[in-house]
Nucleic acid binder design. Structure first.
Lengths: 220, 220
DNA sequence: ATATAGTGTGTATTTATTACACTATTAAAT
DNA sequence: ATTTAATAGTGTAATAAATACACACTATAT
């Protein structure tokens, strides 16, 4: 038996203290004018990983970003025109790296736009479910993945890092305990630099040291 | 674009102190005479969850067992005849519940047989990769799922439970610490019954109390 | 000078994790 | 009746990790 085969992509970034998701406005039936996850049909002979990269590139101008598979959604009724199996992926990009104007790339989609996770519009198909499931995965893996650092610029303050944790976990953390945990992990490189352009005490900047992270994880 | 659509199923059980996987011998090209995961094409209009149930039933005679999706495997080159997308699932059954003779159900597959995880035969397609990935998932989720209890009979001893943990984690555990952890979790109901038919001191039997487990998990 | 907003720090308590060795019970063998 | 073989069952001390909690410091804007 054959099925149509698409991929959908949950693209995260972090801005204004909030986790953001990239959505596009559909220009085709069904769900014309609804917001949906960026996604397309996978082409004949195309690896699905390449299709994800393509979508990411078309919507953000970014390349070579790691993407994680969430799973297949294949309900017979998820699409009014019969089964369309979609494999959902999630990827994380730095907000600042995405060109300010995201353009419509095909006739199927109008514009693309960031939405904060806590105020999503109504979504086409089962895309809300996909996003929810993806967030759960992000949450459970937060300490075993580099996701939080991919959401931040190269140099960041501990407060920003804490905000990313809080956004993903959906709860506030204690500042002192958080810093103790981070110091204890030892994945960060402290820079001899501080934040600029703030009208209050400037915070110290840090970098993520991927090598140390991988070494620590590898030992387990 | 359309693709062929199959599902493959990693069916686990536990016997003789080892985690076991059910495999079938292929009777068709490609990979004729190779061992492979039980799997089939999903039929038109059939939910993939129903296809998994069907396969489980055909191979074990069992129904109504929970199954977990592992993800889609869709490499263009995984099947010599062009892309065949497969969604892998895993399920767990009690060894004792499976009829002793597992019969071939279709012309595609000859026999089905349990193999202990630590001595699998060479496998068709990317099925070894699927099994490995599935085991990883089982391992990481061991404390947050009911998997271990699904591998055991309704009444079991603490030693049996420990063996299941050891089989999944792939390492030995300390008996006293293990029992302390289990007692501390509080998911087990101690029965006024002991093991029978053993030629040494009979161990106490326990039951898994699913309600307590779910309550505990829900509070988080 | 002072108001503002966020930075940066320590200690005590509780809770989990690890390491470690002997006695108790039963059925079978003698 | 006694011994043997096989597994069940149990506690404590040491260490490490997680939590709860409050105030002084500093850069900038006005």
């Amino acid at each position: 038996m054959q099925t149509h085969f698409t991929i959908d992509c949950v693209i995260y970034s972090f801005n204004e203290g909030k986790l953001q998701v990239l959505l596009t406005e559909r220009n085709e039936y069904p769900y014309k004018d609804w917001w949906a996850l960026p996604g397309f049909f996978v082409e004949k002979g195309e690896e699905m990983e390449d299709a994800v990269k393509r979508i990411l590139y078309e919507h953000t101008g970014l390349k070579d970003i790691f993407m994680e598979q969430l799973g297949a959604f294949a309900g017979v009724k998820r699409h009014p025109q019969g089964r369309i199996l979609t494999v959902a992926f999630s990827t994380i990009v730095k907000y600042e790296d995405v060109k300010s104007k995201i353009k419509p790339m095909t006739s199927y989609m109008r514009q693309a736009q960031w939405f904060p996770m806590d105020s999503l519009p109504e979504l086409a198909f089962d895309h809300l479910r996909i996003i929810e499931q993806s967030l759960l995965k992000l949450k459970y893996g937060i300490n075993y993945s580099t996701a939080v650092y991919e959401l931040l610029p190269e140099k960041f303050t501990l407060t920003q890092l804490q905000q990313v944790y809080e956004a993903i976990l959906g709860k506030d953390l204690d500042k002192r305990n958080f810093r103790k945990k981070i110091a204890n992990d030892g994945f960060l490189k402290e820079l001899q630099e501080v934040q600029k352009g703030v009208s209050y005490r400037a915070a110290r900047l840090y970098k993520f040291d991927k090598r140390k992270f991988q070494k620590q994880l590898g030992i387990d």
